[in-house]
């Protein structure tokens, strides 16, 4: 109010007389206003649920469609299909050059990664697991002079034992082996409990 004190006295009187007038009462419909405010508040509150619903629905659709567009290399089902389509199982190794799968990012500074080698006895087992382990760069296949068939399952069992000793065996590999042996008439009647 400091600037009001600067007003001339006659204007102060006029100001007081005018401020004594009361503006006509508001014609705003309070009920209508409150309804509008409630609508606005409700609309704002439900927005989060709409976004959450849309996001979860989109995610569900994405996950449902994903298997058609992203093939899963080395999946057990795919390996089994390949196995059934090529009866009897015959693995033909090319004489040369060796089909070696190298470390995807070899480093000259770090010591070389120990990549185990599988003898020819393990080729049958390798055929089952090759999709997974070759893609992972964990195995190196040496060229084999002859073809192997599923009838050499006993040799393959020995090879799997050798793999166990080398620390490469995995539970899925054993399952695949036993499944194939049962299908071909070899091996135990029931799968081992893993």
């Amino acid at each position: 109010m400091s600037q009001d004190e600067l007003l001339p006295e006659e204007l102060n009187d006029c100001q007081q007389a005018l401020s004594a007038l009361v503006p006509r009462a508001s014609r705003i419909d309070r009920d209508r206003l409150m309804i509008r405010l409630g609508e606005q508040s409700a609309a704002r509150g439900s927005l989060g649920w709409k976004w959450a619903t849309a996001a979860s629905l989109s995610l569900a659709v994405l996950m449902a469609v994903r298997p058609w567009f992203v093939p899963q290399a080395g999946a057990p089902e795919q390996v089994a299909q390949q196995r059934e389509s090529a009866e009897p199982l015959t693995i033909q190794h090319e004489p040369s050059p060796p089909a070696a799968v190298e470390d995807p990012a070899p480093s000259s500074d770090s010591p070389a990664k120990a990549v185990p080698e599988i003898d020819e006895e393990g080729a049958w087992l390798l055929a089952v697991a090759s999709g997974q382990y070759q893609s992972a760069g964990m195995l190196t296949v040496r060229p084999q002079p002859e073809s192997l068939t599923a009838s050499r399952a006993a040799d393959a069992t020995e090879a799997s034992d050798a793999l166990l000793e080398r620390g490469l065996e995995r539970a899925p590999m054993l399952r695949w082996r036993d499944r194939a042996l049962r299908r071909d008439g070899f091996g135990p009647a029931a799968p081992p409990a893993l």
Partner: peptide
């Protein structure tokens, strides 16, 4: 202040003090 002066002139507000 100008608006007040104009209103005072139009309304002829009496100023008893002055």
């Amino acid at each position: 202040a100008a608006g007040l002066a104009a209103l005072r002139e139009r309304l002829g507000v009496a100023c008893p003090k002055t």
